[in-house]
Design a binder for these strands. Structure first.
Lengths: 212, 212
DNA sequence: GCGCCGTCCGAACGGATGTTCGCGGCAACG
DNA sequence: CGTTGCCGCGAACATCCGTTCGGACGGCGC
């Protein structure tokens, strides 16, 4: 593989930094100034080299028509998951239907598509409480759920407890006629209830710790 | 909240599609042509409106100086996590050190920073096998680990089994002098071994199902 | 009608920007 | 030494592109 000259590495690094900051690519003269190059033709020359070597793609004759390629430039596809509310709080959460769920969103959580791969209708909930701490779900985390009405034993599910009027996130187990809702926190006791008192809202897929 | 005129919605949608496709913003004349508008000044007029209403940000006098703002335009910070190899295979995995770990990467996995929030030195491994299926980790998934030498009971860890010469991902439990490595798969038996035979390589943080 | 306002139109201006061309330095090589 | 290839320099050129200006159209209130 052909190597890069120092100048070319410098330009490539400048490209990354500039796009990161501005969300649009630099002009040739931006690169010239940013890299301390005395002529635009030098920039053009090296950009051609970078294109030959497959590091960038250029749309000729178009200003700022530079795209970064390769592993560090590949931009993953971003999915906006609707954030519908908070779980383990006193409010019921409507199970979204495919056509109207987005309307209830209070916000959207951008994630890479890998987080929800192969699933549609995924929605997000903010977590309150530490009842699932041993499943790496902490207070303030965001969980992604897929809407479903049924679950297998041991699944982490959001369940609507009719008698308490609230939704909670627990592992679910069916034990000779009753339901055990098991927190992933050894300091907390499981909830025992009856099948007709619970309504499964969604099944846990993954979680993140939001940055803000 | 001020609403958007049809023209403004149209332009906003065009902006998203164009950036999605090209990785750089359109020029005013690109928008003009793409939206079937007869004059650049109309585009400029509506872009000003969109800026007033907070949907975009413009760098004046700069070609293609348009940034999308708001929930659908906010681009999450992408972290490139080095993918160091495959786990549950016959090869040992070197625990990365802060200065040389990236050199061993065979690839990089782009994820939102939420996935590894607050952690540095996170690395990724491809999973082979279904031993952790009940922890939502399937064959082919990618797991993110933070390098560590110790873990608490019940943690999911990557451990190096000296006698077998392989690394595996299991839940770890210390039981009166010996180690139990528990798969999250009810059809599989735990591995019992001794503390001096295991070497913890990293602690599980999260996982994704890659798209390709 | 009259004025006001939001929106759109067409054209022109001038700066921003990609491209090209001739020239020069420099190292490698015969 | 002459040639070749790589790289850099400066200037000129032709577009590209954001901006501005005068004008027009239609809805609305007085």
């Amino acid at each position: 593989m052909t190597n890069l000259s120092p100048r070319q590495q410098q330009i490539l690094e400048f490209l990354r930094a500039f796009i990161e900051e501005h969300d649009y690519p630099p002009s040739i003269r931006d690169i010239q100034e940013g890299c301390g190059i005395s002529s635009t033709s030098v920039v053009d020359y090296n950009l051609r080299k970078l294109e030959e070597k497959g590091y960038i793609r250029r749309d000729r004759e178009i200003s700022r028509g530079i795209e970064l390629l390769g592993a560090r430039g590949r931009r993953p596809r971003i999915i906006e998951v609707p954030l519908l509310g908070t779980i383990a709080a006193g409010q019921p959460i409507p199970v979204p239907t495919s056509d109207r769920w987005a309307a209830d969103a209070e916000d959207y959580v951008p994630v890479t598509e890998d987080m929800v791969r192969g699933r549609t209708n995924v929605f997000a909930l903010r977590v309150r409480g530490k009842s699932m701490i041993e499943d790496l779900i902490d207070d303030g985390d965001i969980v992604f759920l897929e809407p479903t009405r049924h679950a297998d034993d041991g699944d982490r599910v959001a369940v609507w407890l009719k008698d308490r009027g609230e939704v909670t996130l627990k592992r679910i187990y069916r034990e000779n006629g009753r339901i055990r809702l098991q927190p992933a926190n050894s300091t907390m006791e499981p909830i025992y209830t009856t099948p007709d008192n619970v309504e499964i809202q969604g099944r846990f897929i993954s979680s993140i710790r939001p940055s803000d």
